[in-house]
Design a protein around this nucleic acid. Structure first.
Lengths: 316, 316
DNA sequence: CGGCATCATTCAAAATATTTGAATGAAGGA
DNA sequence: TCCTTCATTCAAATATTTTGAATGATGCCG
């Protein structure tokens, strides 16, 4: 007793295609190096399993019924799927992961990440790439929760989790900067906490999904404008909507042109080391995609470019 | 020599699923009423065809490799597709079309069409329904060009094509109406062509795809605002953006509340009969979906509702 | 209209593929 | 260490598919 799952093999669907293309059972049998009765037998098997006639045989050449035409149409898509799957399974067996998810902190230079993606994807690897934008403790959490395979831009004091490997990217200096038209621009230095507290701060929202998240650099009782990334924080401060620390590498072009002014403050100035992290496991446990990225991240210039410390010009 | 197209049958994919779910070859064999060696043989066939190991056999229970996991993941979708196709082919064989396309003129009452669609789709027929909005000669052309199976709202003087069947929906009266704040509202009646020509007309664009299309009711040299449907024409005239004829059934609520004013004109007033049309062919050549619609369109109340001559309350 | 080529099918035999069941070696739990 | 249960091997049994000859039907061409 044949069932649909037994007889609707890709080869059977391909046979229906050949019949439609050649116009007759006889021609299709010749094209497939079969004897006509074998082809008749197999079509019958399909018709029995589906309990419908796929072909109208009242004329000399058998013609597709409406049901047969429907099977032809839908079957073409399944055929393409199967061929793609077979190809994909074979390629994954070579050691490449089906997918690699990278959590990218908003401090990380976006253009550099894109350049790396371009290099990775150029030889058409089997691995699909997925980027997730994160901020603050959300970057590491994506990794520890298993939602990401690699995290770029983890602050070194952001806690430690067992089972993770880390390597340093470099250190980012933060400066307290304001727009030149902001009232704080005219205050005598160094600025005290009391003076700063009277003005709105610009803060980046933590992208963490579990727990309360962290806030950085806020003074008690201070008004705050919350944005979703470091570039957005920069923009808000350029517009004089608020004040706060910015990575000097990010703010430097604007400091050079006078659109931002550095103010010295009584608080300790910040200088934070960032790293990248991935799950522990020897080289044998890592897919080739992750190995590719870890290899590229070893490069000193790449690291600096990711932190925006130099212009994007990666070595190959 | 097995190939991917031979061995990646839906039944084989289902077998991989059972192995993953039960956790071992032995349990999967029991679940499928097979002897263990038969299952081993079939897995081997798949592995040979794909030239990859789908299972790691170094432990007591065989475990999926990365390639095997990929096949499991992608295979689930193909399985669902195949089952849906088998179901669909069988239902199409019952006489229902895979798809029915209806061209609906913009004079037709939209809510009534939706009510009919709802009734048609309620018993979950195999036929997919596709509506196309058309205007003027585009409505009939969709039918004659084979892009629609049924046309609702064909003007009776819109030409005849061989091979079509027609039935009347009813007659729509058109009145020349203007917004009360429009300058023409204060002109003495009946309005001559010379007076009308000085004011912008609102015209509906013909949706026809071949040929130049037709324009209705424009005077030579008259300014025109072209919109895409009768409801849009009504809206433009309510806003006093232009003037022209409107179906009285469409304009009546606004005439009653004084938002539109009827003006008598020297030109002959329009009263146009509309019909619906489909391809010639006896009942045996029509799918059951088209038959359903033709049966419903025989009803006198349905016809009036489609022309907006009565409120939408269809008999079942 | 008749003849002929070619179509799809039937049928039984041949060939091939799949399944069975017993035996074996290995993993892993108590 | 012993025992259960795992996956595999192997040859025989069973099932399925293919073959090839014969047949009846369609439809083209002279």
């Amino acid at each position: 007793m044949p069932t649909a799952r037994n007889v609707l093999s890709p080869d059977a669907l391909a046979m229906v295609q050949t019949i439609a293309e050649t116009g007759s059972f006889a021609a299709a049998a010749r094209a497939r190096n079969m004897v006509p009765s074998a082809l008749t037998y197999r079509v019958r098997q399909m018709e029995d399993a589906l309990d419908v006639l796929l072909f109208d045989r009242s004329s000399r050449q058998a013609r597709l019924t409406a049901a047969g035409a429907e099977l032809l149409r839908e079957g073409a898509r399944v055929l393409a799927d199967i061929d793609a799957i077979a190809n994909r399974v074979k390629r994954v067996a070579t050691g490449w992961e089906p997918q690699l998810t990278i959590a990218v902190d908003s401090i990380i230079n976006h253009a550099t990440v894109m350049e790396l993606c371009k290099d990775f994807l150029a030889p058409d690897p089997p691995t699909r790439l997925k980027l997730r934008d994160e901020t603050l403790s959300g970057t590491l959490e994506a990794l520890t929760s298993g939602q990401a395979d690699l995290a770029l831009g983890v602050a070194l004091d952001a806690g430690t989790a067992p089972g993770l490997q880390r390597e340093p990217l470099g250190t980012v200096r933060f400066a307290f900067v304001v727009a030149p038209h902001h009232p704080l621009a005219r205050e005598p230095e160094p600025l005290s906490d009391d003076v700063i507290r009277r003005h709105r701060a610009v803060a980046v929202a933590d992208s963490v999904q579990r727990g309360g998240g962290i806030t950085v650099g806020l003074l008690p009782g201070q008004d705050v404008l919350t944005v979703s990334s470091m570039p957005a924080k920069l923009d808000a401060q350029l517009r004089g909507l608020g004040v706060g620390f910015l990575a000097t590498c990010l703010a430097q072009p604007y400091m050079d042109t006078g659109r931002l002014v550095v103010k010295s403050v009584e608080r300790a100035e910040q200088s934070i080391p960032f790293s990248y992290a991935w799950h522990k496991g020897g080289k044998a446990a890592q897919g080739r995609a992750l190995q590719w990225w870890l290899e590229r991240l070893k490069n000193r210039v790449t690291r600096a470019a990711l932190l925006g410390l130099i212009a994007t010009s990666l070595p190959h």
